[in-house]
Nucleic acid binder design. Structure first.
Length: 454
RNA sequence: GCGGAUGUAGCUCAGUUGGUUAGAGCGCUGGUUUGUGGUACCAGAUGUCGUGAGUUCGAGUCUCAUCUUCCGCCCCA
């Protein structure tokens, strides 16, 4: 009896064509992060349980993968932010602030798998950590990076929604709702999902007065352009330091976003955005893909005053955002919006006609040394099968190597899309491939999200 | 943790009130084509019907149990 090959539920595994696209996405993210001067970080998957759970509440403990090995009580990381705070606290004397790090890595949560929810998943995190203070400009810089990434991936119809936690604190205090603010925010967070009526019912259950409910509902439902929302907020005339600070911060961030290259069509102030329950203390973001409200936020984050408070007395404010890559990929794939095609990373497949491989090897070496990803076909089979292989893996060019080519130091290069075949001297083949490559338009990774969703 | 579904070929799925030999499309293999793939035509292979028990002359089909996967809820630090 053979063991049935299988993987754990909630652990994504991809076929070659998909994995290539997934890795392209990771490449774009990594390259974008580095273009803004972020440094890579790679913390361990396993950490001491008491370190990772220094702050955690009940739900975290339920979902975390935790086990004993010898006398050690170990946990698998459930996000990248807690390890970051540990890292920053541990190495604070060796780090130069503001510390800009990115980390693209897997995290683990033992929750019930569902659509777009995995037990092992990639997150792409960026954070900027300050020492005692951190400029508000970074609150605009971080979402600008995420905007750039999504655009580079080929996504156009999305919007980064933002809010400010100080605004919410400042709003609820004069209403006498400070104690209930956490519960209210949790309900408001579901607004787009459950609708205004259900929200109202929930607020009634919290025993808010009718006046309070009306105030809350009309506040969170305020929408419009950035300027409109800002003037609405100013017009409320709430004389509360927190509230006024928030307005000024939102205004600063909105203005800075423009100069950082994010068009107004792609961000907006949305007073329904709350993000989590504690932890965040200033700007908060959630990014939604238009036409896919059921996807939820694909990329979110915000500002926190005190990143490493569980590990050190030093106060380290930070701003960060996280893109859930596994989830994002899975949702895109489910809608058929990913551009799969190739099953190889090679640009050229060298196909020997006969069993004499020496010239074929030479051709492959020339191509590789010229910076062209090249695969050498080694199996002895009928020529038709070799071409069939080339077709299946989706390689753009095939270099056919036979008696004629060998005798004359030529390469017969076939363009697998057009079917055209050209005989080229070996010395020119690298230049020729570069030429062809530059003539082809770059394919977007994500196909335009244009269909209307139901 | 609570609730609802699902399981038949590699994949997506049909399969009648229980009836004798288990079906399609796609994919796969081979051929038409021995230095040229995609399209077309022809041929072929592939199943413990999730698993175990029960009812029955007879179970893919009905009953029970169990496992798997999926979808809501909770939660999302």
């Amino acid at each position: 009896m053979k063991t049935t090959p299988r993987t754990l539920s909630g652990f994504m595994e991809l076929l070659p064509a998909e994995q290539l696209v997934f890795n392209q996405i990771l490449d774009v993210i990594r390259d974008s992060f580095e273009s803004y001067g972020f440094v890579p970080l790679d913390t361990p998957v396993l950490e001491y349980a008491d370190v990772l759970l220094a702050k955690a509440g009940g739900e975290t403990e339920k979902q975390i993968y935790r086990f004993q090995k010898g006398d050690s009580d170990l946990c698998m990381r459930f996000d990248l932010t807690v390890p970051l705070s540990r890292y920053v606290a541990q190495h604070q004397n060796d780090i130069t602030f503001p510390f800009r790090r990115y980390q693209i890595a897997k995290s683990y949560r033992g929750e019930r798998p569902q659509k777009g929810r995995f037990r092992e998943f990639y997150q792409a995190d960026i954070d900027i950590i300050g020492n005692e203070r951190l400029s508000i400009i970074h609150d605009a810089e971080v979402p600008a990076i995420m905007y750039g990434i999504l655009r580079r991936l080929g996504l156009n119809r999305f919007r980064i929604k933002m809010n400010n936690r100080k605004l919410l604190n400042g709003f609820y205090q004069p209403l006498g709702l400070t104690k209930k603010a956490t519960d209210i925010l949790r309900i408001i967070d579901k607004f787009d999902k459950i609708g205004v009526d259900a929200v109202q019912d929930c607020l009634v259950d919290l025993s808010l007065s009718d006046d309070q409910i009306q105030s809350v509902l009309s506040f969170v439902q305020t929408s419009g352009t950035t300027d409109q929302v800002l003037s609405y907020l100013k017009g409320l005339n709430i004389q509360n330091e927190s509230f006024q600070t928030a307005i000024s911060e939102l205004e600063t961030v909105a203005n800075a976003l423009k100069t950082l290259g994010v068009p107004e069509t792609h961000y907006q102030i949305d007073l329904k955005i709350t993000r989590g329950l504690d932890y965040y203390t200033g700007t908060v973001y959630e990014t939604y893909v238009e036409g896919h409200p059921n996807w939820g936020a694909i990329c979110s984050g915000g500002r926190y005053d005190n990143l490493a408070e569980n590990y050190t007395d030093r106060k380290m404010p930070g701003i960060g955002m996280s893109l859930g890559v596994t989830r994002f990929f899975d949702l895109l794939r489910g809608e058929g919006l990913l551009n799969f095609g190739k099953m190889t990373s090679a640009e050229v497949l060298v196909l020997p006609m006969d069993e004499d491989m020496s010239y074929a090897c030479q051709v492959a070496t020339v191509l590789r040394q010229g910076g062209i990803k090249t695969e050498l076909y080694g199996a002895t089979t009928k020529f038709k099968n070799k071409m069939n292989y080339a077709n299946k893996i989706g390689v753009p060019f095939v270099a056919i190597i036979g008696e004629d080519e060998r005798q004359n130091n030529l390469v017969s290069l076939k363009d697998m899309v057009s079917g055209n075949q050209t005989s080229i001297p070996l010395s020119d083949v690298v230049k020729f491939v570069f030429q062809k490559r530059s003539e082809q338009p770059e394919q977007p990774i994500i196909l335009e999200v244009s269909r209307t969703s139901k």
